[in-house]
Write a protein that binds this DNA or RNA. Sequence first.
DNA 1: TGCCAGGCCGGGT
DNA 2: ACCCGGCATGGC
Length: 230
Amino acid sequence: MNRKKILESVFSVLYRHFGHLDWWIDVDPFEVCVGVILTQGTNWRNVEISILNLKEKGFLNPQKIAFLDEDTLSELIKPSGFFKVKAKRLKNFVQFLMSEYDGDMDKMALEETHVLREKLLAIKGIGKESADSILLYGLNKPSMVVDEYTRRTLARIGLIKGNEDYDEIKEFLEKNLGRSVQMYRVFHALIVELAKTYCKKKDPLCTSCPLSKGYCKFYANLLQKNLQSF
DNA sequence: TGCCAGGCCGGGT
DNA sequence: ACCCGGCATGGC
């Protein structure tokens, strides 16, 4: 049994359990970018308040944010925390978008995925997870998102050791999930849902996880045994 | 009540 | 190459 089969089975089980989960469906790509930056280290609920603030003022577009002073901006995004650094990060991103693509997300979307990823990573405040989230959920490009949940969950299942770096895990997933944007989007959302619900930091044995029936390392074995039923 | 949330950067070892 | 503090609000 190879890791690809197991990974496919994991997806299958999660999909059956949680259903079709996806994020930012049909959301304006620029709004996705703002959301991605605001949600760094922060609960999504808090981000929604900030997004609403920006929308109410009609500021949720590149041009407006570009000409907004940083203090006003940080005031509007206060609910999502780290508001001063995030105001700066939003400014950095918007400045990039304006200067490289005339503030046009459609133009940005024309870039080749890997090229754009490197450009995004060069922006202060955009790390790997944010860059990949923008690519995947904002622009529908095949760039898998990895986060702490993904690392922890895959490690507990036994698919990775857990000490691999970001890009290693990303490549593992991209190689074994196939290059389907839809698959990446849903898989990441499913993993996050699983981790938030059952695969918590404080519960290393995953005792509450209905999928694992005990320690998650045995999850892989469970899948192998029952593979034919998936 | 304390802990954590859909991270990232910069400086120190 | 890792490790850590700082950044900050709101919900359970």
